[in-house]
Write a protein that binds this DNA or RNA. Structure first.
Lengths: 315, 315
DNA sequence: AGTTTGAGTGGAAACGTTTCCAGAAGGGAT
DNA sequence: ATCCCTTCTGGAAACGTTTCCACTCAAACT
């Protein structure tokens, strides 16, 4: 197979017998050019199969037309759907999407931000472990790089597309209370590395207290525990007497449903389970998933629009 | 907020009082430099918060350290998980991931490939509607751009990470036959735009025929039909007498489970349902999902390793 | 006729790197 | 004292663009 060869605008110009500047003008429909030259250049470009090098353009123009996006993991449908939303908006605006994921690791987060910034992205859309404490993120902003947060409650001077985790969680507590539940629990997967999770718990507990109900039990699961329903069932059983569970996300809520069934109980008859996120698949489930609908793809879309607006406003 | 300003190696050199070439050598640990200069350069870089511009590097070096990846949609967990696999391997190797998605649209596919190629990616990892008929893909390959296919059965001279859809589908038919099913159906969502779906049906039917069983009914659903369980239930009911359904993917299989329940029947007692893919969430479902496990993330990983090998081999 | 306009054109600089090359300086051998 | 070999250094070219500038030429004015 022939070795990598690129067709540059220089080749087009030579083939068309004109200067580089002229070829550039024709192909970009910027400046003026005679019909005859225009024709020659276009033919040459077509025959050579020319296409612009985004790198050359980026270097010269200072804009890469690329947006960097960092999420914890694409294996979690919430983020995957959000990124799809981002991608939809971006491609409509002629931008490309550079993706990074951290696997919920704070150090990886920082490194990823730095790498994305080095790639000269024009903006950043970010969901990370601790945005408020990320040196890399602060540096990026200080450098004037527009940043849009996704899922995070607002921070400092950052733009943010989000749902009010605290309020939504209070809502759940309210519903539980209305149903007469007093013995409740909050299930979280990575409590320490997710401000979303912490805010949800805070809201949940605050509403319980406001109503004079006992604090919900906080259960932090390891990845392994969450992924083996038998273990999860054991944990739930050991707590005894629970009648309602608020899971920090839909993934977990689904696991709880299964664990409950393993215990010989049924949802929602014996145990109320509510999730968070509203991932697509939840709507198709056999036993419908009760959840807080956050429309992840809309979240991605909005974060992107916000960012794009900022980009326009600055240009 | 201060306008966008970048620190270049030129700034570092000036600050350190040395030439650009020297600064470059120190920062890259390539050529030699006196301890004293080395110290000055490193200090300057640190103080200025310098980081290399990937664009400058790419332009000069001819390698962008970026891989382009095209999938139909990240909203489908199969692809999201696969992309996460790609991302894992890539970031381990120091590469970045540029993402595009087509929403199962063949034209968008071609355009995306062209755009990615223009971004000077070093390689392509692709799942698309019709790779064997994509002019853009052929052009990319002719230009010497390494391409690795995901999910597609092998084509021409392309590298491909895949499962044998045909064989796996025959397997399903065999199981159905062993259970005594004679009245079966194959459910597909985008039959015309998915070679995977077509190959699965072909394998399914081939095995039925080989056993002298009647052809499975082929049901093509629209997106809307698949997403409203009530409608789906109606369709299934209208077919009457079905005892086993092979769904083209897990998403669909889950929808069928729900539709079945709506009809007052139960899976697997009254109706056998088998899916395809093995997405993570399937393992956590209340009623476990019978499926062909294809380990999407492993697929992504393998496609990436293959591509990276090709990249090394050429360099 | 002489002057102004305007369109059409190409050379060259700039963007941030890396690397080739050549020059300078120093030390060890003859 | 001369030479050579290393080590260290910086200028400059190259990568693919866009854009500023200056130039030519003809048409349209006075």
């Amino acid at each position: 197979m022939g070795h990598r060869q690129k067709v540059t605008i220089k080749d087009v110009a030579r083939e068309a017998g004109c200067g580089i500047a002229t070829a550039s003008r024709v192909l970009n429909k910027s400046g003026s050019a005679s019909a005859e030259v225009r024709e020659r250049v276009e033919t040459a470009a077509r025959e050579l199969g020319f296409s612009f090098s985004a790198i050359g353009r980026a270097l010269q123009g200072g804009r890469s037309m690329t947006i960097g996006c960092l999420v914890p993991s694409l294996a979690n449908p919430v983020f995957a759907e959000a990124v799809q939303g981002v991608q939809d908006v971006l491609s409509g605006a002629g931008y490309q999407l550079l993706i990074a994921s951290s696997n919920y690791d704070g150090d990886a987060d920082n490194e990823a931000i730095a790498t994305l910034a080095a790639k000269d992205v024009d903006g950043l859309i970010v969901t990370m472990v601790a945005p408020e404490r990320s040196a890399a993120l602060m540096l990026a902003r200080r450098r004037g790089l527009p940043v849009s947060l996704m899922f995070h409650d607002p921070i400092d001077g950052f733009l943010s597309a989000h749902v009010d985790n605290f309020a939504a969680a209070r809502d759940v507590a309210q519903r539980f209370a209305a149903l007469g539940h007093t013995n409740t629990a909050f299930l979280a997967l990575r409590f320490s590395s997710s401000d979303r999770s912490r805010n949800r718990y805070a809201g949940f507990r605050a509403e319980c207290r406001a109503r004079g109900l006992p604090d919900p039990v906080l259960i932090e699961l390891t990845e392994a525990e969450a992924n083996t329903p038998e273990t999860l069932a054991g944990i739930l059983a050991s707590l005894g007497g629970l009648t309602a569970i608020f899971a920090s996300n839909d993934f977990l809520a689904i696991a709880v449903q299964k664990a409950t069934r393993l215990m010989g109980k049924s949802v929602p008859k014996d145990l109320s389970v509510v999730g968070f996120d509203g991932i697509e698949i939840g709507r198709l489930l056999d036993v419908p998933l009760a959840t807080i609908e956050t429309a992840p793809d809309a979240m991605g879309r909005q974060a992107t629009h916000t960012l794009l607006d900022l980009l326009q406003g600055k240009a």
